[in-house]
Computed example of a mutant assay.
Amino acid sequence: MALVNAGVVVLDCAEPERLAEFYKELLGAEETEASANRIEIQGAGGFRMAFRRDVNATPPSWPRPENSLQAHLDFVVEDLDEAERGVVGLGGRPLEAKDAAGPHEERGFSDPAGHSFTMRRGIAPTAPKQG
């Protein structure tokens, strides 16, 4: 029997309302919980994310080496060009990064609060990326 029934990806940010709106549009998600300091959304297939207010939040500097990546999200898309136009239209921005090795074409982005994520064409790999 599992000790945990469900998981939620939580991103700290200065403006959870703004970031929740970005990811709601990006994922076609709906808001499921909201308080003054936390907003949770749920997308297709039950994927859940939350956005927690941290007035001192600073985004990671990835891909620059002076700060670690911390964490990032991978999303699978059919059309990278269309996905990129959508991300930029929602207030995200492309990140300049070296092409990742592997069988899947991908592009890096940051959300409006600076959290990085990857859009990957095709099926997401099941094993960790090597190298």
Rank of each mutant, 00 (worst) to 15 (best):
A20Y: 03
Q130M: 13
P59G: 14
N67V: 05
D99V: 03
K98E: 15
L27S: 06
E40S: 15
T58Y: 07
F75W: 11
A44G: 07
E106I: 00
S68H: 10
D81P: 10
G89Q: 07
R107F: 07
E105P: 08
L11T: 04
E106Q: 14
F22C: 01
E106M: 14
P112F: 03
L19V: 12
F109K: 04
V87L: 10
M1G: 13
K129V: 13
D12Y: 10
E84K: 07
H104S: 11
F109E: 02
V55P: 00
S35R: 09
R120C: 14
V88L: 11
L26P: 02
G45K: 08
L11G: 04
V4G: 00
E106T: 03
D74G: 12
P60N: 15
A50I: 10
W62L: 08
P103S: 13
K98R: 13
V88R: 10
G131Y: 08
L90Y: 14
V9I: 15
A97K: 10
L95R: 09
A34H: 11
V76A: 15
E84H: 06
T118W: 15
D74W: 06
A34S: 08
E30S: 14
L69F: 05
V87C: 11
A71H: 12
D74E: 14
E33F: 15
F117N: 03
D74Y: 04
S61R: 15
V9C: 11
E66K: 03
P112V: 02
V10T: 13
D79H: 13
S35C: 00
I41Q: 01
L95M: 14
S68T: 05
F51N: 02
F22M: 02
A113S: 08
G89V: 02
R120G: 05
E25H: 02
T58K: 14
E21V: 05
H115M: 01
L3G: 10
W62M: 08
G114A: 02
L26Y: 01
Y23P: 01
L69V: 06
E82C: 06
T126V: 14
S110Q: 15
M49Q: 04
R121T: 11
D111I: 02
R85M: 07
T118P: 00
P65V: 02
I123C: 00
F75Q: 05
D79K: 13
D54W: 08
A29T: 07
A71C: 09
A14L: 12
R64F: 12
P94V: 04
Q42L: 00
G92R: 03
T58P: 00
A97D: 11
G108I: 00
R121Q: 15
P63R: 15
E78T: 15
V77Q: 09
G91Q: 04
A71E: 06
G43C: 03
G91P: 03
L11Y: 13
W62H: 12
A2R: 15
K129E: 11
I123H: 06
P60M: 11
L90C: 07
K24N: 06
G122P: 08
